[in-house]
Amino acid sequence: MPIDPTLPYDDQNIFAKILRGEIPSKRVYEDEWAIAFHDINPQAEIHILVIPRGSYVSWDDFSAKASDEEIGGFIRAVGNVAREHDLVQPGYRLLANVGRHGGQEVPHLHIHLFGGQFLGPMIAR
């Protein structure tokens, strides 16, 4: 069920538990700002989730409350993951769902990184 991004951060969400090591994940990247791991239900040949280490509900929450250093570190982490997986050429897609209308299901900011195949149009026409 999609979530309300205006609710307070829930430290019992699945990504918070992954950050704490309570739930295993197949990590592919980790630094002081973010971790990245394979999605358990991939929607493309390559489907990696990148999450900040900080407690942010959504992109809106992150952009409003995170420090410049956190924002820069997280964005660099996303780029590093794409480069490490050879996705820059021929290309890839980033997706961040926000709120009910955006289809956000986990109340922790996460970026979906899709690649490894032609992804087609962003929205079905």
Results as ranks from 00 to 15, higher is better:
Ala36Ile: 02
Val98Lys: 08
Trp59Tyr: 13
Asp86Cys: 14
Arg27Leu: 06
Ile14Met: 04
Pro2Ser: 15
Gly99Trp: 11
Gly99Glu: 12
Pro42Trp: 01
Val106Glu: 00
Glu32Cys: 02
Val57Leu: 07
Leu7Arg: 08
Ala36Phe: 01
Trp33Ile: 05
Ala77Met: 04
Ile40Glu: 06
Asp11Ala: 02
Glu32Thr: 09
Pro90Asp: 11
Ala82Tyr: 01
Lys65Gln: 10
Pro121Val: 13
Leu113Trp: 06
Gln104Thr: 02
Trp33Thr: 09
Gly72Gln: 09
Ile51Cys: 15
Ile111Leu: 13
Asn80Lys: 07
Ile51Met: 14
Pro52Glu: 12
Ser25Thr: 01
Gly91Gln: 14
Val28Phe: 05
Pro90Phe: 13
Gln89Tyr: 10
Asp10Trp: 12
Ser63Lys: 06
Ala34Arg: 01
Leu7His: 02
Gly99Leu: 06
Pro5Ala: 01
Gln117His: 14
Ile111Glu: 04
Met122Lys: 09
Ile40Ser: 06
Arg20Gly: 10
Arg83Asn: 12
Glu105Trp: 00
Phe15Glu: 03
Ile48Tyr: 09
Glu69Gly: 07
Ala77Lys: 06
Thr6Trp: 00
Val28Lys: 06
Gln12Tyr: 04
Ile18Leu: 07
His101Tyr: 08
Asn41Pro: 11
Phe62Ala: 05
Gln43Cys: 07
Gly99Ile: 08
Ala66Glu: 11
Gly115Asn: 12
Val88Asp: 14
Ser63Trp: 05
Asp39His: 00
Pro2Arg: 00
Leu113Asn: 07
Phe15His: 06
Ile123Met: 09
Asp4Thr: 08
Val88Tyr: 14
Leu109Trp: 02
Ile75Ala: 15
Lys26Cys: 04
Ile75Val: 13
Pro90Met: 13
His108Phe: 02
Gln12Ser: 05
Ile35Leu: 09
Glu22Lys: 10
Glu30Pro: 12
Ile71Gln: 11
Gly79Ala: 03
Ala16Ile: 02
Gly91Ser: 15
Met122Cys: 10
Val88Lys: 14
Asp31Ser: 07
Phe74Leu: 15
Arg93Val: 15
Ala82Ser: 11
Ile46Tyr: 10
Arg76Ala: 07
Gly103Arg: 05
Ile123Glu: 03
Pro2Leu: 11
Pro107Asp: 08
Ile3Leu: 15
Ala124Asn: 15
Ile35Ala: 07
Asn13Cys: 11
Asp11Val: 03
Asp31Ala: 11
Tyr92Val: 06
Arg53Cys: 10
Asn41Leu: 02
Gln12Asp: 07
Trp33His: 13
Arg93Ala: 11
Glu84Asp: 15
Val88Ile: 14
Arg20Pro: 09
Gly54Lys: 10
Asp4Leu: 11
Pro2Thr: 09
Leu7Val: 00
Asp4Tyr: 03
Ile18Gly: 02
Glu30Arg: 02
Glu105Val: 10
Ile3Asn: 04
Gly21Asn: 10
Thr6Asp: 03
Lys26His: 07
Glu45Leu: 02
Ile46Cys: 09
Ile3Phe: 08
Glu32Asp: 13
Arg93Ile: 12
Asn41Lys: 06
Pro8His: 08
Ala34Phe: 00
Asp61Tyr: 07
Leu87Met: 15
Arg20Met: 05
Lys65Gly: 03
Asp39Phe: 00
Arg93Thr: 12
Leu7Tyr: 04
Val50Leu: 13
